[in-house]
Nucleic acid binder design. Structure first.
Lengths: 131, 131
DNA sequence: TTATTAATACAACTGAGTTGCAAATGTAAA
DNA sequence: TTTACATTTGCAACTCAGTTGTATTAATAA
């Protein structure tokens, strides 16, 4: 499957990500809040699912296991190549994709399929505001 | 706060982790299932919280954002030193603590406080069973 | 043994995410 | 354009991990 029709909800969701800063992720909660008056939350969940299947977005879990989405860079329908860490600020909640590569250790006798690295701390803006 | 009294629920939970293999983690869901006849789930959540505060256990989020706990190695009340990746098998669901160190990249202008690396794939046992 | 305070059970709740289905809508073909 | 039909959507109801408030029970120190 994948996104077939350019429906209003697809356009609206893609717009949210295009308006966003390039490295920023958006939580599903935030997307539902923003688009609540226009679309049902079920629709939002389903469109995000399909955009991920299509390699347009990638998802990951942030603090408290909440789901976040961000734009993909070099992904196709079947393969998400865009493997990078995510940084979540514990003070303002913002999440960024980090464009650094992380070397994952070899693990004997195990086959690695997915890697998720979530780094939490104080973001640039919160570092500059507070001492 | 921390654990003050050696109550039945504390003993029972610690026992679950001591019976377990050294590298294995246990999900809260599993602990509730196992101890359901003896203790209320609220109690289990609260005791696990305190055992983590005391540096006896550490917690992390596995697949689907579900909470897992495992024994700590060199942690104290105030500092969890035991930073390592976790491996979750996508076929049998088992989760292990990996005793390898991962080098986290420097991130300019940000202060790292927590790092969570979850590696998912096929575990040793599932590798040997299936081709 | 008693007094005190922490720990527990219970029930009710919260909230992110899911499911089933009828109605609406986009798209390709006529 | 119009038709036909599969896809998409809204809605309501649900699931289920985790939380909260409170009255009761149990561990510990004196």
């Amino acid at each position: 499957m994948g996104v077939i029709r350019k429906t209003k909800s697809v356009v609206a969701l893609l717009n949210e990500f295009n308006m966003n800063t390039s490295s920023g992720a958006i939580s599903v909660i935030t997307l539902i809040e923003r688009l609540d008056s226009k679309f049902n939350k079920t629709t939002i969940y389903r469109v995000l699912d399909k955009l991920e299947e299509d390699g347009v977005l990638h998802s990951f879990l942030g603090k408290n296991g909440l789901k976040w989405y961000a734009k993909c860079n070099n992904c196709s329908v079947n393969k998400h190549n865009d493997i990078h860490p995510h940084f979540q600020c514990l003070y303002c909640g913002k999440v960024d994709c980090l464009s650094v590569s992380v070397s994952i250790p070899k693990i004997p006798n195990r086959k690695i399929e997915v890697t998720q690295l979530l780094i939490q701390g104080k973001c640039e803006m919160c570092c500059s505001i507070n001492s």
